[in-house]
Design a protein around this nucleic acid. Structure first.
Lengths: 149, 149
DNA sequence: TTCGATGCAAATAGTTTGCATTCTA
DNA sequence: TAGAATGCAAACTATTTGCATCGAA
């Protein structure tokens, strides 16, 4: 098991949460992969060895882990949300091919500061992927209005 | 009818599209309001005077108007998408109260330019609202991991 | 009069919930 | 062994689709 996984599970125990098979499997899987997995993806992979773990349990597990600050839940404009262990990067998702690119959170520091100063609005860019076109699809007609940037 | 509405409908005619009751009502409603209305919201309001206009027609109408560049379709991290006539602002949505704040697209110019230069990624910030906390709810625990900005 | 648009019903994707049962601490 | 977590089924929200009919050009 990765160090990140055992650290997360230890934190659960330390906080008096129960470490169940489902939680252990979800945390290990998230720690092991760099992919952007949906609840359904996670359930499918877990089912190979543990067919008894139900999709709704995966959802509840992710909900709890998110609530306790161990997991980030990222919304996409199209398709299901994906999940990953708490980290410091943000996501760019291509409207055309769906590929997700990780970029350091620091890229957005100036914007976050300006939003706070100008609008009193605290941006949480981890909460939703930013949509657009990756290099391969930037030329094609945008999936937005002509006047849109 | 507002000038913006008739301009949009004229553009449809000029492009050889049919101007139907549903399309006229959707365009007029979008032109008249500054609210952020979902397909369901639009259908409900249209139903007062035109109960025969079906929700699926509203969806198809919005789809078409979007495809032809007259309407923007904005995704939210929670809840339904909302729609508005093509314009140049972006949206900040509060994770707590759901209130949506319009901000000028120019606020994001620097970020859009940097994304293009550093990552070859063409951001379409009109396509999805940016999540965070409005002034009234900025203090409360974030709906994201502790390490998240 | 033609073909695009609509009404309606049914299907779909993603997610949530109620409740009896199981299992961790 | 108490109460948290789970399995399963069913509900739910937002959205899409198939198909017969209608109506704008």
């Amino acid at each position: 098991m990765s160090e990140q996984a055992s650290r997360t599970l230890d934190a659960l125990r330390a906080d008096g949460r129960r470490v169940t098979t489902a939680r252990r499997l979800v945390v290990e899987l998230l720690a092991r992969t760099s992919e952007h997995l949906s609840a359904d993806d996670l359930a499918l992979r877990i089912h190979h060895a543990h067919p008894e773990i139900h999709l709704s349990t995966v959802y509840r597990t992710l909900d709890s882990l998110h609530e306790w600050g161990h997991v980030q839940h990222v919304h996409q404009p199209h398709g299901p949300s994906f999940f990953h262990l708490a980290g410091a990067h943000r996501h760019l998702v291509c409207e055309r091919c769906g590929r997700i690119r990780d970029v350091p959170a620091a890229e957005f520091d100036a914007l976050v500061a300006r939003s706070r100063e100008h609008y009193g609005f605290e941006l949480h860019l981890a909460h939703a992927a930013l949509a657009g076109r990756c290099g391969n699809h930037a030329q094609e007609t945008a999936c937005t209005s002509p006047t849109a940037t």
